[in-house]
Amino acid sequence: MREMLPFGPGVFAWGLVTGVAMVKSGLSIVESLGLSLLAYAGSAQLAALPLMAVFAPLWLVTLAAIIVNLRFVVYAALLRSHLGHLSANTRLWLGYFTGDVMFARYSALLAEEPDYPHRVAYFAGGATANWIIWQVSSIIGIFAAGAIPTSWGLELAGTLALLALLIPLCRHRPAQGGVAVAVIVAVIAHDLPLRLGLLAATLAGMTAAIALERRLRSPAT
């Protein structure tokens, strides 16, 4: 758990912003608490808010949350060989508690010491710390939001938090191309009903990124 402390302020700020953003997009305090305590997914919560605000179909809200969470599928694919000996139940909950920061710390540890004997305890401890910091800050944000005037435009902080998550994902050329295509399609398809433009933009961006990845790789092989 001590390992998580340097990341505490970042997680805290994020939770705070998410808490404020939920209330500012029109959820009641109880609904915001429910979303935070159950879903425990900053990016997916923030991604779902604009969709919920316009009553987009439930399948689209869920799909958007899954897509934003897909990075965890990649994380989990890398973790599974280290945690595969655990019971299905334990794995279910370890997966649920995997945050971005937690995963980054854990892979750094395994790179240094692949056979670290207390790795499950390390993972569980870090994940618990992350969960507590996240929930406390979100709850503070939820209750503080009522005292903050809407004219401050604080819901923008939620968008900025997503932006802060997005930029590090764009380190490589294919991702940059995919993101550029996704933005262009999102603008063109903005008027599609049910916010389907988001889905179209995501699929177009993914296709572009994969095509670009192939092209960049082919001269070398």
Binding site: N69, L70, R71, T159, L165, L169, P174, H190, G197, A209
Partner: peptide, 22 residues
């Protein structure tokens, strides 16, 4: 696996673009 790697960035970009540009 590639598709999964790029999906979150693309989805986030689309959401952020909607929030900022309109």
């Amino acid at each position: 696996e590639s598709a999964l790697r790029y999906a979150p960035a693309c989805a986030l970009a689309a959401i952020v673009a909607n929030d900022l540009l309109f």
